[in-house]
Design a protein around this nucleic acid. Structure first.
Lengths: 348, 348
DNA sequence: CTGAAAGCGCTAACAC
DNA sequence: GTGTTAGCGCTTTCAG
């Protein structure tokens, strides 16, 4: 039933040379140590027999599988697919395949999946679902597995990371809101066990102080997940607290969408009564009313950059010194996208 | 730098037995042929040494890699991530990893990626990006690679497929529109080289006839891609044709969204002037106004089902006859979701 | 320039 | 019950 695969041995038998000769002929780096005629003859018969190299066997020998693992929280979250395409765009042309796993942001699951990847001998890991404190990935990195984290970072570690310029995004957004006359600006923060949630809140506090805003603790509420339901819940709590505010800077788009919904349920319109801003600029946003003002992060490029860093790490690990060392920190620029969810402050 | 992996040999040396004994002790299916004490001793030292099986090596020997390939057109399209989660939900607990590739619906790219998967010795392939006529995947299937197609099917082939009940969806939608008084209903068809586009158009023609609708050829326009821009373009063409219609049944949600936009550009409101319906019920739809009436297909379950079928195929291939044979055809039920983009026909 | 031989880590007959 | 042996398909010394 299963058609037997053509192996080097078959080609060797056909051409009448040794397997190792065939191996060399098929390796561009080694083929010029052979007689050109032999090389062409071998290559021709390889094609005609329909030879396909067995990467499994090669990997066993060379300890390189040409596959990398990618860990994300949940592929169903629209910000990840563009990142994956970015990663693929640099890795695939180089012959790498990627194994994608969803951690659901659960440490236990993450740990198990990490082992799945290591058992498969991945050449490296791009980790976009890392927790602020993440012993298992740190451990893997210490074992010599090339790892780069994306969007998030592990505290106090030497694991390279690619993140967005959260602070610039928060600053730009606060300046925009202030420009519209807002002074009492709330922050709907993300989960504090994720570095994005934490970094954005820290940036909010820092920049709010810089810009001399009235920083009322009641104006900062934390969501326990990055989703619409938590956005709605947090916005409702914010209103219930009695603290006055005319704008909410949310830690991501989904929280913002939920918040707008929660405000509407209490009879407050966005942007007429309160301005709301997001973060990420996920797809479909321009189709949803009011069109959300947000901070655009470079998703595709973040993926590309992380893949580049990983390649440098892999090169360093395998001793293929290319001179270029992998940077510990890469911060990608962000961009303000002003749409319809922010308006001049009615109170001013 | 790279910490050496613990192998069976290391455990064997530590315990003082032969590698094959260790191999058996660690295999649940074989461990009961050994003395219980030695099994526990081996397992304990395996844990304490931090042994992790090398699936690459095992795969080379057994010719099973415990990885499956998944081919989709584009992960960035929101209907695919839920499918992938469905696939993962059945495969991952069984120890399978999945390699996901994006074909961008290009035959050449698909062909190349298929080889990438085969070179990696995947145990099977779930193909959700197949073209109606797809020689390369047919070829792979003939070579004995277990393949199941998802959402689409290959014409005249023995490759099992899991699809949605397109005809039931079209019928339900047409009945809904007729119930609202619509008689002149246009069809914005999808690409005809994809089976979904073709099946839905065929279903439209068949059911329209059944229900004795005025079937004007000018009322059927084809999009060349499943995206918003083509929906807009096709809707504009439809208007330009001069044919009268009060509703458009679109072959998918994105075409519908584009069509609504295109109509709006010509001063026609949905649903006041024309009702528009989608297909798929992709996520975020309920956040976009007007909320689209559509046909919900089971994305997650389609993934699960395809994975189940693939497992049966793999079992059959490896001779692990489980009795259950893989069905050639699986048709999943669909569900009508009535929202705000359809309304009573103004002309009636 | 090419052949011989060893071995990556594991599994699966086959012995004992 | 457990050890022996022989590879899976490939790469990579080391000879010649």
């Amino acid at each position: 039933m299963v058609k037997k695969r053509v192996t080097l041995k078959d080609i060797a038998a056909e051409v009448g040379v040794h397997v190792s000769t065939v191996s060399r002929a098929l390796d561009p780096a080694l083929s010029d140590t052979l007689t050109p005629e032999v090389v062409t003859k071998i290559r021709d018969t390889a094609d005609s027999l329909g030879y396909r190299p067995n990467r499994i066997a090669a990997g066993l020998r060379t300890n390189r599988t040409m596959t990398v693992g990618v860990m994300i929280p949940d592929i169903t979250n629209v910000i990840f697919p563009p990142i994956l395409r970015g990663i693929e765009s640099v890795l695939e042309p180089l012959g790498y395949a990627t194994i994608i796993v969803n951690t659901d942001s659960e440490a236990e699951r993450e740990n198990r999946l990490l082992n799945v990847l290591r058992d498969r001998g991945v050449d490296g890991i791009i980790h976009a679902a890392v927790l602020l404190s993440d012993p298992c990935i740190t451990h893997a990195a210490e074992d010599g597995v090339p790892v780069v984290t994306l969007n998030r970072m592990v505290e106090n570690s030497r694991i390279p990371y690619v993140i967005n310029d959260e602070e610039a995004g928060v600053r730009g957004m606060l300046q925009h809101l202030i420009g519209l006359g807002h002074r009492r600006i709330a922050h709907l923060a993300g989960p504090q066990h994720l570095s994005t949630g934490q970094l954005r809140q820290a940036a909010f506090r820092k920049v709010a102080e810089e810009l001399a805003l009235d920083l009322d603790e009641r104006l900062i509420v934390e969501a326990s997940r990055f989703d619409e339901a938590e956005g709605r819940r947090a916005a409702t709590d914010l209103l219930a607290s009695g603290a006055r505010f005319t704008a909410i800077l949310c830690a991501n788009d989904r929280l913002a969408l939920g918040a707008i919904d929660g405000l509407a349920a209490q009879g407050l319109a966005c942007p007429a009564d309160v301005s709301v801003t997001g973060f990420n600029d996920m797809s479909f946003l321009e189709l949803i009313r009011p069109r959300l003002t947000t901070v655009r992060i470079q998703q595709y490029d973040a993926g590309r950059t992380a893949a580049d860093v990983l390649l440098k790490l892999i090169a360093a690990e395998t001793g293929t010194e290319t001179g270029a060392e992998a940077p510990l920190e890469t911060i990608l620029p962000v961009e303000l996208v002003i749409r319809d969810s922010t308006a001049r402050c009615a109170d001013s």
